[in-house]
Design a protein around this nucleic acid. Structure first.
Lengths: 140, 140
DNA sequence: CGCGGATTTGGAGTTACTCTAAGTCAAGCG
DNA sequence: CGCTTGACTTAGAGTAACTCCAAATCCGCG
């Protein structure tokens, strides 16, 4: 069992945001401590936190995530709809990942370029080859 | 030369956002058409758009991006500071990329699991192995 | 010359945090 | 036992980055 603070550190998310998510109904099973009513996260609850993080990664709206979680709570008759949601989101995420990979590569090229400049060894122009790649990548 | 709308399609960013960025001073060299004052993007300007996208990817604040761009405009005496900014951001981006890769993998596991459920072939539990990986990944 | 379509602007609205303030509770210590 | 410290609670204000809307302007075509 974990406090908000512990989950915050473990999952790399602010305690504020965890409470906010809980208030929005994104953690349907988080219980409370007897005395002060402090949130108590179980190991299973960590799975919910991680699921929300996976969905949020690609800027899926909280309202849509809440809809998914409500479906989970409802039971087995919602499995088909949940499947569609996850499949769609997985596709979006995979595309975003490709774009992110390109951009990280670009940043690394930029680092190399500047490093060469500072060393006085006049690095090669990093723009042209990347530019072409970029246009190809975005022409879909 | 491109209009806001064309750049929007090419770079996969909304026309609204492009104007917003320009108003915030993130595109220092975008010129305007003679009559109506419409924005005119050159090929070089596309590089600025892409640079902003690379930085924004990891939620770098617009104010910080503007600072970097102001440094670029200032000239060669700011190269050392620009190098530090890009190096730092590149590191952040690379770490984020790793996290994103984990999460995309998780979503794909989830898709497989649901697909097996729907096919009636009762897929294996996807949580435990991923859970361990997650804890290892986030324990740094 | 007038109309459609795209652009401009300023400003209002929205989402998802992010923080502040005021209060509650439990543990440790003289 | 009472006090302090620190982590928790809530409601609500504030912020960043869009996101959209309304009204005005401009360009090309019939």
């Amino acid at each position: 069992m974990y406090t908000v603070q512990q989950v915050s550190k473990m999952m790399n998310i602010s305690a504020h945001t965890l409470r906010y998510y809980d208030n929005e109904g994104l953690f349907p099973f988080v219980s409370r401590s007897a005395g002060s009513g402090a949130r108590v996260f179980s190991d299973d609850d960590l799975q919910w936190v991680y699921t929300v993080q996976c969905f949020r990664m690609t800027d899926m709206p909280l309202a849509d995530i809440k809809h998914y979680i409500d479906l989970c709570v409802k039971g087995d008759e919602t499995i088909a709809e949940r499947y569609e949601i996850i499949k769609k989101q997985s596709g979006i995420a995979s595309k975003e990942l490709d774009i992110m990979q390109e951009r990280v590569k670009m940043l690394e090229k930029k680092v190399d370029y500047y490093k060469a400049l500072l060393d006085g060894t006049e690095g090669e122009d990093y723009w042209n080859p990347i530019y072409l790649k970029l246009m190809r990548c975005l022409a879909d």
